[in-house]
Structure formats: C-alpha cells, structure tokens
Write a protein that binds this DNA or RNA. Sequence first.
DNA 1: CTTGCTGCAAAAGTTTTGCACACGT
DNA 2: ACGTGTGCAAAACTTTTGCAGCAAG
Lengths: 152, 152
Amino acid sequence: MMPISDEQLIMPVCSIFRRYIRRRGLKFTPERARILDVVLSQEGVFEPDDLYEQMRKVGHRVSKPTIYRALKHLVDAKIVTEVLIDSRQSHYQLIFGREPKAHLVCMDNGKITEFPAHQLTELAQQVCLDNGLDYAGHQLVVYGVDPDADKS
Amino acid sequence: MMPISDEQLIMPVCSIFRRYIRRRGLKFTPERARILDVVLSQEGVFEPDDLYEQMRKVGHRVSKPTIYRALKHLVDAKIVTEVLIDSRQSHYQLIFGREPKAHLVCMDNGKITEFPAHQLTELAQQVCLDNGLDYAGHQLVVYGVDPDADKS
DNA sequence: CTTGCTGCAAAAGTTTTGCACACGT
DNA sequence: ACGTGTGCAAAACTTTTGCAGCAAG
C-alpha cells in the first residue's frame, strides 16, 4: 500500500468515519468530528489525555468520557488502533491509509520510534490460519536500552 | 536454548532469584519465596491478581502490594517478563529457561495461545542496532477473530 | 543492630458508568 | 419525536505510596 499525503488522507477519513457512524444508526456529532480532527493531526502514538489537552488548548470543550467513547468507535472503524506499549496507560495510533508499523521503545527515556515491518504480516496471518482464526491485526514492540546510560 | 523440565527449572530459579536479591542488599523473605513458587506454577500468561487469588486459596496471606513489589524484582531479574496484551491490566509470564514466545489473542473470547517466534529475535536486534540502542527484548502479539462468531 | 519488608489504609491515576438534558436524524 | 450523545460527578479498578511494626542479614 502506498502511503498517502495528509491532504489526501483527511477528507476520505472523515467521510469513512461518518459513513461508519451512520450505518450503525449512531450520530456524527461535532464532538466526534473534532476528535477525529485532532487524531488526524497526531504524529505517531498518542494517549487519550493528549487529545484532551490539545483540544482544550485550542478552546474545544470536550469531556474525557466523550474522547474515550469516540476512540472506541475509531478503533472499531479501523481508523485508529490501540498500541500496547505500557500496561498502565492506553496508547493509540492512526492506521488508516498508513502501512503497518512496529515500535521500538527506549526503556531509558520512553522514546518511541516507528519502523516498518512488512515481513511480519505474512507470519501473523499464517499463525491465525494455523489456529483457526481470521487475522485481525498484529503488533511488534522491540525494547532497547541506551548504551550510554549508567548501569545500576 | 533447549527447554528444560519443571523439576530442572524450579531449583535453579529459586537460587538465581535469591542470589539476585542478596546481591542487591535486599532480603529473601518467605513472601518472596512463596510468590516465586506460584509464579513458577503458572501456565502461560497471568495477572497479579491471579497470584493473589491462588495464594489466598491455599492459605498464604500475602498482600497485593507485596505481590506487585515482588513482580518488579522478578522482571528485573529476568525471571518474568511483562506481556502487553491489554492496556487496562498488567500481564506477566515466566521466561526463565523458556524460549521466547509470541502471543495469539482471540478477540472474541480473550483466549491467549503461545507460539514460538525465533525469526523475530534477529530482526529485533537489528532494529536496535540501527537505532543505536542495546537490544533488551521484544514482543509480538497477533490478533484474531473467531470466523464462526456472529458479525455485528 | 541496621535496613529493608510487610500489611494496612489511603492515594493516585486511568477508564467507565449513571443520569439529566441536549441534539442529530 | 425518537434515540443517541454529551458533560458532570461519581464509581470502579488497578497500581502505588506512607507508615508503623516486624524480620532478615
């Protein structure tokens, strides 16, 4: 899949989410539209609270429950995916129109680097097949430590 | 690395943990010994609360804070690793003397299947190298859905 | 003895829920 | 109009922390 530019991305994602919402008899509210906007502006991995703070900073009054509820729909709609990097905090990432990425986490400073991992998809699909499941996604996280950090 | 049997495993793990604890000027208490025992008896992935309930069931009075504190040391000692499968709950798994495993999660019933993923280690190490980090571990989670489950 | 450990209770933090009112469709 | 959504406040949970007394080294 060829990556597409931001301008190419934003319009279709909006329509796709609107269609997804309406097909389910749900409602495309201004809050959901604005949340999708902020999500589309995120670089890499983000937390629900990031969205809350950023929206608040530009004067958008959205409550946290609304953000959590919208994220659930965005995940269902396969526009966003949950990224499991920290067991004590939800992390999400935009996936629509993007190649699947794996994550390298530096355990010293928490910095997250993305890298492509094409090879994995085939392996992951085969594993599902072997176990009688339909493939629904996969995630690779690699952990590293800074070689220059002091060892305790 | 050749997998080893349970009897071969339990003794060395105990000594290794004791040595780890003492080298750091910490204390090898009965609570920590019992927690390690329960950890060694787990099949696959477990949660802190699983340990708590199982210990309670056999009459071992250990508090949850103590379990959380012990798990931290077990992770540091590389006897146990955290498994990121659910952002709302910590999951752990015994790794000492075991081959690295990847996880297949069925999104319909939550069932977790382990499978070997040798090929990944090399890839993961290369990624760290490319990014100037020392390799510290990796984790692959594959998601599947039951083809027989009703689609909503 | 000294220092770390435990259990309790409380705190901290994230995510969810109940409810009354507001708003898409 | 009907049925969802929203915000608020509170609940639900998991995980962490402070502290007094206890115990390992």
